[in-house]
């Protein structure tokens, strides 16, 4: 598993896409930081977090598109599956690699609150909550991306699939609110975004954290099943 984890991180930073995404993400963060915090002279970083968490549904699909699709296309899947590692380890190794890449991205975001702290003392709890929420949200979106990448050997289709899935998940809350009544309750319970919002107020919302982790587990499990299923049906 470690071998796969290391290889994927290295391979990710070998491609130009990594730097384009990293640059784009940092640029967008900086842009919103400028408008929300500097220009309007506010010390509240949370609105920036909310905005960039939406940007994730564009960035994560591109980040994860090749993670499994490429192995299938190049035939390296045979190497992984026929070596003495289980499918579970393969999926987990790949997922964790993407998670590490994502953490590197989040570290860059952390620069901006540090700048604020250099000049003042904003309340730390909501910021920390947002940070944890942002990471959990990102981790969940990555699990969707990994799953989408396992479904196809075409990276463009993988991007499209994960983007659609993420968009639906993003819209679940608004759809629920529009419907109202019990549908709103159910859909809000499932919505990643409403769970994320719980964190932004500075609450360490354990049930939500558990929900995020279960969400990730389900998608990783599905990914594993997809690979297993294909092993049975291919020649």
């Amino acid at each position: 598993m470690q071998a796969i984890l290391k290889r994927e991180i290295k391979s990710y930073f070998n491609s130009p896409i990594a730097y384009v995404l990293l640059g784009l993400f940092t640029f967008i963060c900086a842009l919103f930081f400028y408008f929300v915090n500097i220009q309007s002279q506010s010390a509240d970083f949370n609105p920036v977090f909310s905005t960039i968490s939406f940007i994730l549904i564009f960035i994560v699909p591109i980040m994860t598109m090749r993670i499994l699709a490429e192995d299938r296309k190049n035939g390296t899947e045979v190497l992984l599956v026929s070596s003495p590692v289980s499918v579970w380890e393969i999926v987990l190794g790949k997922y964790l690699a993407m998670l590490v890449v994502f953490l590197i991205m989040t570290c860059i975001v952390a620069i901006f609150p540090i700048i604020i702290f250099m000049f003042g003392k904003p309340p730390i709890a909501p910021l920390l909550g947002s940070f944890i929420g942002f990471m959990l949200l990102g981790a969940s979106l990555i699990s969707i991306g990994v799953f989408a990448s396992s479904l196809t050997e075409n990276q463009v289709i993988a991007v499209f699939l994960s983007f659609v899935m993420m968009l639906v998940i993003w819209l679940v809350e608004s759809i629920g609110n529009a419907l109202g009544g019990w549908a709103a309750n159910v859909l809000n319970w499932f919505s990643l975004t409403s769970r994320y919002n719980n964190f932004t107020s500075g609450l360490l919302d354990i049930p939500s954290a558990v929900y995020f982790l279960s969400f990730i587990s389900v998608f990783l499990f599905l990914t594993m099943r997809v690979i297993e299923k294909r092993r049975w049906s291919q020649g």
Binding site: A3, K6, R7, K10, S11, N74, G75, E77, S83, P84
Partner: peptide, 22 residues
């Protein structure tokens, strides 16, 4: 079809395989 990672050098690739095969 040899299962090769095109973006690696031979040494990197074989090191990866050794790790994979423990």
């Amino acid at each position: 079809l040899p299962p090769l990672y095109m973006d690696m050098t031979i040494t990197e690739y074989l090191n990866f395989v050794s790790e994979l095969k423990m």
